[in-house]
Structures are given as C-alpha cells and as structure tokens.
Design a protein around this nucleic acid. Structure first.
Length: 544
RNA sequence: CCGCCCAUGGCUCAACUGGAUAGAGCAGCGGACUUCUAAUCCGCAGGUUGCAGGUUCGAAUCCUGCUGGGCGGACCA
C-alpha cells in the first residue's frame, strides 16, 4: 500500500517536474478525518521551491492520477499535508491475502537470507537466572524471532566464562556445603553463594564420594559439578521460556585456540598498544573510545576481560555473520566502545554490529519493591517467576516496554487473570475467534464457497481491515528497529479493533454469503493475531 | 569530576525520518449480556510532555544549561 502511494506521488512529482531524490515518506494518519495515509512531502519541498507548502500540496493533488484504483479521495490540507483516503476495495483485498499466506502473512525478505547472530543472556554459570536476566533472555529471543521473520538466518549464542574468580568462589561454596553435610561446623563465608542449589550439588558429591574429598578444596569436582548443575538449571529455565540457543561459546576456547595471544600480537604489530606501570594498554582512544584500557594485567599475569571480548567478537566476523546483534544490560554498556575500538583497530568495520542496551528490571509486589541481592538467597529467580505467572505472561511483560525504559514488573498485575492483565486481552481475542469458528462449523458454515468481500464495508469493519493491513509494515519496522515493543503495541491495537467489530457485528447469521464473508474476515484476524503472538513466543489459545 | 539511559494525566506506559486537536490500559464515576465467550464494549472525568532557553513553517521528539532518578567510569565481568 505504502509503495503504491509512493509511486503515485512520484508520478505526480514528475508530472510537475519537481526533483526529489529521497524516499517519499508516507505514514498512517492519526485521525480518521485525515484519511488513512498522509504524506508531508509538500512541506519538505516548500523551502527548496520557495513556495507555500499548501500550494505545492494542492498542485500535487491536482496531478495525482485519480484513476488509481486504491484511492478513494485525496486532499491537500493546511499546513500542507496530503491525505489519502483508501478505497474500501483495496482494504478488502487484504483478507484473501492473509488467507493465502497464512502463517507466513506479514513476513518479509528484507534480510535476504543474510547470516545474523544474536548474543544474549551470556550469564556466567554461578547461579540460577534472575528476573534481571529474564528481560535479556526474552528480549534477545524475540529479536531473533523478528529477524528470522524478516528473512535472516539467525543463530542464538550464549557466551560465558567458567574460569574466573566467581567460579572459584562457586567451587569453594560447594566445598563448604559438602563439609557441612559431612558434619563439620565450617563457617559459610558471607560473600559466597548461599543458594539452595549449592547444597543439592554438595549432597550429590557426598553420596558419590563419601568423605574422601573432605580435605581437598581445590578438587575440580566441586566447581565442575556446581557448574554443570547450574547450567542444567539455566537451560531448563530458558527451555521453559521456549528459548533454545544454537551455541554456548566458552571464553576458555579463545585461549585454547590461541586467539587471545593472536589478537594481542596483532595489536602490538600495528602499534596499538603500549606499556605502562608494567601492564599492556590498548590505545582505545585512538580508535574512537574515550579512554585507553588495560589489556594485560601487571599484578597477575593474565588478560583483562576486554581482550577476550574483542577476540570473541572477531570470531563473529570470521564465522561469517553479516549482522551481529549484542544484547547487554545497562551495567555493561561501558565495555561497548572498547570492543568496537578493538575491532576497528583490527581493521573491521563495525557498521554491522547492533548493540541493544536494556535498562534494569524492578520487581514490585503490590506497589512494594522486592529487594534482590545476587549472593544472598533472597532474590527471585526467573524460574520461580515462571512458576508463579507462567511463560506467556513473563514473555509479554518483559517485552511490552521499550528496552530503554526501566521495567516495572508488577507481580500482582502479572498474576491477575482478569481484565487488568494485557496479555489476556490479546489471547482472548484469539480465543473468541476460535469460538466463532467452532460454532460456524457446527452450523455447517465453512470458508468453502463464495465470499463477497465488498460486503465488508461498515466503519468498524473497514477500521479492522486497516489495522490488519498494517501488520506487514509493523513486521518490517520491527526488523529494522529491533524494537519488539512496536509489535506488542500493534497487537493491542489489532485486538481492540477486533473486539469493537465483534460487539457491533454478528458473524454467524441467516445471511449465508455475509456470514461466510465475515468468517473469512475473522479468520484473517485470527491468523494475524497468531502470527504476532508467535513472534513474541506467546501461545495463541483456542479457548480461555 | 566524566560518560550513557530515563523523566509524558493519580499509577504503568504509547506516540513510526521533527507533523495536524499528545493517545491507550489500570484506578475513579456512569452505562451495555434471553443473541457467535462481558477476560468484552460504550460514555464521563483526568495534561503547561521535569524546569529554563534555543533551532523552524511546526518540538514530547533536535541543541544548550539546569533539576531529579537509574547505570557505569577497576589491572572485576
């Protein structure tokens, strides 16, 4: 639709002999009086042509091909908008398009099969995922789904490090729990991991090894068992959210493959490093970052996290990804310029890296903040949240706000099954249609047979068709902006348009032709709702 | 001290390269179920878009300076 209008305007410009190279901007009108689509092109041209925008708009309207079948009416309005009123027939056609494309309706091929990678969660396996990780998990997976929907070949990747200090603490925490289970009255250090899950791991070790390891805190079994248990738990939680990673990338392999050393040597070779205070610094400032950074420590003979981060990101290029999406929490945003600077130093263009930074989550219960501390046992885990409110609500709540906003996750609201909960509003629309289809079937009414789409002409019906036709644009916009929240806003709009239609018009009546035609309409709505919900990883129920 | 993000009705949030009269939901008040699901719909009320300037035909959106909040600025990740 937009393309057609652009073409119509383009022809009008040519007819008036006006030069305009950029893409002609067409947007949905805000109000019904302004028609269905609007262009501000006359106002953009006003300065260049030194003429009143309204005059230009009027000229354009005059030159527009009135015979174009999709247009009912075109108006030029002060201060210079051109408003298009679309012919009902153009909207009505959308029904058959939806029915034809089915679960692919709205998808696009703007990705053209390019390889994309989305890296997210990337939490080290020291404990269960928290509600904080949840936002990133759902955001990342939804972005991945949206990219797939737009024709990208997407890999989901989880990057982790099981070699650091935190992991040693995890191992030692397990060891102490093990000792305690053996009856020793060891004191559990305050700053160690106090979660229940550690005790379970310790119990398993005790069952297998008895007290053989009681004086062997360095034994890898503690760390490895804990890590394995934690990872199983993380994967299960993610699986419950319908999130499956294609790859878990261990930082350690960067060392094993010699990539850390390799990157460092190349930095040195191009003189991008220098020594100061016994440490090796990277001239990040020369490559777009604000400050130089230490790459190799002097106090201990090891790299800082920045070096493996850079080496890791280089593998993404080497592995042939055309689009690289990183999802970070606000607490990691400071590392972004360093990684980008590193890649630039290595000679890569960072244009194809999109870094999405999301703000934090606060959990509230009845208006009161739920406090969270990672090491203490008093945080709410993602899996507990799932148990409490279910996958659909969790996914929806995480995605319904823009990622730049702080997310207020209201447990009470999430738990209500009533009208306050926005998830059910969408699902209810879908279930309601399913119910209509069941009733139709009982009465022997199916889509087999003639329909007359021109019967779809009441205000509520046209409004509904208009929203359906917007779905493709929304999908593409989401794919470009990588902002899933656009989709939730749209689906609310679609559900509203349907509910309004439903209260005014009956689908199943004695008029067979009209009934079958409306049945086609609501089936189309059902398909679009299901496609949208599926993109969000939310189930589209047949009954509620 | 420096950097990034945020501030929109009582609450939670929208607003698509800067567009027309800033929109929803919840909470409040008043209506609509003998008809395909009332988890719905309709109506009323609610706003100086944090403050002060600037840019222009036009600003919630862009720029500058404040105020208030979140997160960072480690040889922690």
């Amino acid at each position: 639709m937009v393309e057609k209008l652009q073409k119509i305007l383009k022809n009008a410009l040519i007819a008036l002999n006006i030069q305009f190279e950029d893409e002609i901007f067409i947007e949905r009108s805000r109000r019904p009086e302004y028609g269905h689509y609007t262009s501000n092109i006359a106002m953009l041209l006003a300065k260049k042509l030194c003429r009143s925008p309204l005059k230009i708009a009027e000229d354009l309207v005059y030159s527009i091909d009135k015979n174009a079948e999709i247009i009912d009416k075109v108006e030029a309005i002060t201060p210079g908008f051109i408003n298009f009123f679309i012919a009902p027939a153009a909207f009505q056609k959308i029904v058959s398009e939806v029915l034809k494309d089915g679960d692919r309706f709205g998808s696009s091929n703007i990705g053209k099969g390019a390889k994309a990678q989305v890296e997210f969660v990337s939490a080290n396996p020291t404990g269960p995922l928290t509600v904080g990780h949840g936002r990133q998990a759902v955001l990342g997976d939804t972005v991945a789904r949206i990219l797939e929907w737009n024709g990208y070949d997407v890999d989901r990747e989880y990057y982790y490090n099981d070699a650091g200090r935190q992991m040693r603490i995890l191992g030692y925490s397990t060891y102490i729990r093990y000792r305690q289970l053996l009856g020793f009255d060891d004191v559990f250090p305050d700053d160690h991991y106090q979660g229940e899950y550690i005790i379970d791991v310790a119990r398993d070790i005790k069952e297998k090894y008895g007290d053989q390891l009681k004086d062997d805190p360095e034994n890898n079994i503690f760390k490895e068992s804990a890590e394995m248990a934690v990872f199983e738990d993380i994967k299960k939680t993610l699986g419950d959210l319908d999130i499956v990673f294609d790859r878990y990338y261990n930082e350690k392999s960067l060392y094993d493959d010699g990539l850390i050393e390799d990157v460092l040597e190349r930095f040195k070779a191009i003189n991008a490093t220098y020594e100061k205070d016994g440490a090796i610094w990277f001239k990040a400032g020369e490559y777009g970052a604000t400050e130089d950074r230490v790459l190799w420590k002097s106090v201990v003979d090891e790299a800082t996290y920045r070096l493996p981060d850079i080496a890791y990101h280089e593998t993404k290029f080497k592995r042939g990804y055309d689009l690289i999406v990183d999802i970070f929490g606000a607490d990691h945003h400071a590392t972004v310029p360093d990684v980008l600077a590193g890649l630039q130093a290595l000679g890569y263009s960072t244009d194809n890296i999109k870094v999405l930074i999301h703000q934090f989550v606060t959990l509230t219960r009845g208006g009161e903040k739920v406090k969270m501390s990672t090491r203490k046992a008093n945080y709410v885990t993602l899996s507990e949240l799932m148990d409490e409110v279910g996958k659909d609500v969790v996914r929806y709540f995480y995605i319904m706000r823009g990622m730049k906003s702080h997310l207020n996750f209201d447990l009470n609201l999430a738990k209500t099954e009533g009208d306050e909960n926005p998830v059910y509003y969408l699902q209810y629309a879908h279930a309601r249609i399913a119910s209509i289809l069941r009733n139709a079937k009982v009465k022997g009414l199916t889509l087999d047979g003639d329909v007359d789409l021109s019967l779809l002409r009441e205000n509520e019906t046209i409004a509904l068709l208009n929203v359906i036709s917007e779905f493709r644009e929304v999908g593409i916009l989401c794919g470009q902006a990588l902002e899933p929240q656009i989709l939730t806003t749209y689906l609310q709009k679609l559900a509203t348009a349907f509910h309004k239609f439903y209260t005014v018009h009956r689908v199943i009546t004695d008029d067979f032709l009209l009934s079958r035609t409306r049945l086609a309409l609501v089936t189309a709505v059902k398909i679009v709702l299901a496609n949208g919900l599926n993109l969000l990883g939310i189930t589209a129920p047949e009954r509620m």
